[in-house]
Simulated assay, not measured.
Amino acid sequence: MKCRVPRLKSCCCCVDLRAGCFFLALFEIFASILGFFVAEEGKLFLIGRLAYMFHFIGSIFLLMGSMLQIETLVIIYLGTNIFHLIFSTAFVVEYAVECRFCALETTPVYITLIVSLYSWLVAFSYLRRLHWQNDPEYDE
């Protein structure tokens, strides 16, 4: 029995997956640049910045992968986005506990994490479509 991951046929119900990956990559590049300036001091803050740096690089790979239709670049983005989701979530939880759950400062980070999770699903669906287009025998 195979585990089925949700498949998206379009981004935001009306945009092609390729164009959706392009625009989500632009948004995530902007969000990761803002994430560089969120942290202050400490080991977990350094890990948060490192996660945003990897996410910035991965988003550039997604941007190039959506323009050039290269599967390897999309796979690199998926890996860096998982790294970003794990370590940025730990960073946000630590920051929220340290500042006694200051919602105003952590709300933008929560929103970018939700958008990153959706972007991961869109990029994964785009990768599956690229597999299907490049290999006629690929059928999961």
Rank of each mutant, 00 (worst) to 15 (best):
G48E: 04
E137R: 13
E98G: 06
M64R: 10
V15F: 10
V15D: 01
S32D: 13
S119Q: 01
Y126A: 02
L127W: 06
L17Q: 00
W120K: 00
F83A: 12
T106K: 08
I111Q: 05
V115R: 07
G48A: 06
G65C: 06
A25F: 00
M64P: 00
L24W: 03
V38K: 11
E137A: 12
I29H: 03
F30E: 04
A123G: 01
I70K: 13
H55Y: 09
I75V: 09
Y138D: 14
D135E: 09
Y138M: 01
S10Y: 06
D139Y: 12
E40W: 05
C3G: 07
I33Q: 01
E94K: 12
M53F: 15
R18W: 08
E140P: 15
S32E: 09
C3Y: 14
S88C: 08
C21A: 14
S116Y: 04
E105I: 10
I75Y: 02
R100S: 10
R100G: 02
I76M: 07
F45K: 06
A25G: 14
Y110I: 14
F87M: 09
M1E: 11
I82C: 12
F27R: 00
C21M: 09
V115S: 13
T72S: 13
A90H: 07
H131M: 10
E40H: 07
I75W: 02
G65K: 05
I76T: 04
G79F: 13
G79L: 14
F30D: 01
V97I: 11
L73D: 07
I60A: 12
R100W: 04
F83H: 11
R100C: 08
R7G: 02
I76N: 05
R49F: 05
E98S: 08
E28A: 15
Y52A: 08
K2Q: 12
T80Y: 10
N81E: 15
L130P: 00
G65T: 05
V92I: 14
K2Y: 06
L73I: 03
L73E: 09
S88R: 11
P6S: 11
C3E: 12
G35D: 07
R49A: 11
V93S: 01
V115C: 08
G35P: 06
T80C: 13
F87T: 03
E98Y: 09
S32M: 11
D139W: 13
E140L: 14
L127Q: 00
E105S: 14
F61D: 08
A96W: 04
A25T: 07
G35N: 11
A96R: 04
L50N: 08
L17R: 02
I33L: 15
Y126F: 15
D16Q: 11
W132Y: 09
V93N: 02
V115M: 10
F23N: 02
F30N: 04
V5R: 00
A123Q: 01
F101C: 12
A123L: 03
Q69S: 13
I82E: 10
L78G: 05
S10L: 01
H84V: 05
T107V: 08
L130W: 01
Y110H: 05
L50A: 15
C99M: 07
F54W: 06
S10G: 10
P6T: 09
L104C: 10
N134E: 11
D16A: 14
L73P: 07
L121N: 08
L62D: 02
L127T: 02
C21Y: 02
F101E: 06
H55G: 08
L121W: 04
F23W: 13
N134K: 13
Y77T: 01
L127A: 03
A90E: 10
C102D: 05
F22H: 12
G35Y: 07
R4S: 15
A31V: 00
